[in-house]
Amino acid sequence: MRTILLNIIILSGLLIGCDFKTTDEYFNDACKKEEQGDYEGAIKDLNIVLKRKPNDIEALINRAIDKKALGRYDDSMQDFNKAMTLDSNNIMALYNRGNLFAETERFKQALEDYNKAIKLKGGENLYFELKDNESFGLRFSDVEMEAIRLQRGLSRAELGDYENAFSDFSFCIENKYGHDLAYLWRGVCYYNLGYLDKACEDWWKSKELGMEEAQDYIIKNCKTNE
């Protein structure tokens, strides 16, 4: 009787120490925590995923994004770079590493990543969009062309390349993507290219779409009774 009881106690102890959650469950939990802004918690879950699967590209990219959100830029870059060594043509990695470069004011490097991502999607004139297929449990690995071109436009504008930035912002406006921000920055392009009236038109549209920052541009540069 004592032997049986001892075996039950030992077995119970072993079960308590076991982790029955799958790698995908940890990944999905991390995604939920990211949506809630719990980046530290998400990183802990992704650490477990990467301990089990060190070459899980999507886990590396997600952890890099979480680290960037926490201002851990060097650690974030390490994860992005590792993901890129595993798959140098990963559009998600290129886009998000480009965002990290831009956030740390390395705009030329950001442009290199954005341009490669756009090329991998087929180019500016004829491109493809991949869609996640949840029924097969596939993880999402593509980025919308509009998102890439909006960020590329911002980096181009920061570098003073207003003509090319203009085309990116116009593309986003035409496709109704981030058009409040796109109108704001296309206005900046118009202004720097010498088209003040058109700049003011775009800033007014940006303001109407809820971009508060547009008001400052309007007051400073445009005729207004406000």
Rank of each mutant, 00 (worst) to 15 (best):
E112P: 03
D142W: 01
D38S: 11
L94M: 08
L60A: 02
P54C: 03
N133K: 12
Q78L: 06
A42R: 05
L60S: 01
Y26E: 09
G37T: 12
D75M: 06
K82A: 00
L60V: 08
C31P: 01
K67Y: 06
S88G: 09
A64L: 06
R72V: 00
E40K: 15
S76V: 00
F128G: 12
N96Y: 11
F107V: 02
E146P: 00
E25C: 12
R52E: 11
D38N: 15
N96S: 10
A59I: 04
G122F: 05
G71C: 09
D79S: 01
D45I: 11
F80G: 00
A64F: 05
I48Q: 08
D24A: 13
L100D: 01
L50Q: 00
A83G: 04
Y26A: 07
S76M: 04
Y114K: 09
A30I: 14
T85G: 00
D56R: 04
P54Q: 05
R106K: 15
I118A: 03
N89Y: 03
G123H: 09
T22M: 06
M84G: 01
L94D: 04
S141H: 12
I65T: 07
L86P: 03
E112T: 13
Y39W: 14
N81S: 09
T23D: 10
I65N: 08
I118Y: 02
D79R: 00
A117L: 06
E25L: 14
T23R: 08
N47L: 03
V143S: 01
F140C: 08
L130V: 12
M92Q: 13
N90T: 04
G71L: 08
V143C: 05
D19A: 07
G123S: 07
D24P: 01
D87C: 05
D87H: 06
I118F: 02
Y73G: 00
L86D: 05
R52A: 09
A83D: 02
N115Y: 07
D56H: 15
A30L: 11
D142I: 07
Q36F: 11
I65D: 06
I48L: 11
V143D: 01
E105N: 15
L86S: 05
D19F: 08
G122S: 10
L100M: 09
T22I: 03
